[in-house]
């Protein structure tokens, strides 16, 4: 176990160093959430007049959604890093050392988590500066970020597995394009469920992105519904564990195909 921990530690430190050498990606990927917050948020400002949003500030309503959506968009690209390491031979070099396979995947998960946390904090600060309120204060914000990280782990691990299995940039780009906006719009990121068409409202209940949004929005409210937060958080945690396990399993398929 301690060997797994040290392996994970060194592999994570390595990934973070690489990430810090290229901070530009972290910054570029913040452009999108800024657009959602400030352009989309202003454009649809009056939508709260329809009622049912639980707030009279649309900005307040979309902040948790934008944080969670950003986590999804950021982590979906994780497979690109894995793909790059596969094609440049770095992954193969690690695979012929005694390093634990799980440590390699854990390192990806931790690196992504750090990226998600940094970006989420920036988005929250920007929203706060623009006048968004966080009724439950720091604990609520911490829960929001935790839920964003969990969602990120789910889709980051999926992306890593795809990167290793299909080994084609186009596949990752295709899957991400196909998933990101539908997952976002089939959720309560921008619209309350009561105002959605029935079928969308139904589908959205099975959307992990929606679990994260619903739970974090509740956690940020003045009176959090802890049952909701814990159940949705629990589902996300279970799915995250499953996806990480699956991504570690893909090393076996990789070993057959390599």
């Amino acid at each position: 176990m301690s060997a797994l921990l040290t392996d994970t530690w060194w592999m994570t430190a390595r990934r973070l160093k690489i990430g810090m050498a290229q901070p530009v990606f972290l910054v570029i990927s913040l452009i999108q959430p800024v657009i959602w917050l400030f352009l989309f948020g202003n454009l649809f400002e009056r939508v709260v007049d329809l009622g049912g949003f639980g707030t009279d500030s649309y900005l307040d309503y979309i902040v948790p959604g934008v944080v969670v959506m950003n986590a999804l968009a950021w982590n979906m690209w994780a497979g690109m890093g894995t793909l790059e390491e596969t094609s440049q031979g770095t992954l193969n070099r690690f695979l012929v050392t005694p390093v634990r396979r799980s440590a390699i995947m854990n390192a990806n998960v931790f690196e992504q988590a750090v990226g998600t946390i940094v970006q989420s904090v920036v988005i929250v600060l920007l929203a706060w500066w623009a006048g968004a309120t966080f009724d439950s204060g720091l604990p609520g914000v911490a829960l929001l970020i935790l839920l964003a990280v969990l969602l990120g782990v789910i889709f980051g691990s999926m992306s890593n597995a795809i990167g290793m299995l299909v080994r084609q940039r186009e596949s990752i780009i295709g899957i991400n394009t196909l998933l990101l906006l539908p997952l976002t719009f089939l959720s309560t990121v921008f619209m309350v469920r009561d105002l959605m068409p029935d079928w969308m409202a139904t589908v959205s209940r099975f959307n992990p992105l929606d679990w994260a949004v619903v739970a974090s929005r509740s956690a940020l409210s003045a009176t959090p519904d802890w049952g909701l937060v814990l159940s949705r958080g629990g589902w996300l945690l279970a799915l995250a564990v499953l996806m990480v396990a699956l991504s570690i399993r893909t090393f076996r398929s990789y070993q057959k195909a390599v």
Partner: peptide
């Protein structure tokens, strides 16, 4: 094992690459 192509982390230094490799053993 030394592969055909360079497998070192291009953004890390030579020394860092060697250090990590040693850690993994």
């Amino acid at each position: 094992a030394v592969a055909q192509r360079s497998s070192a982390d291009p953004v890390a230094t030579g020394r860092d690459n060697l250090a990590l490799q040693g850690r993994l053993y």
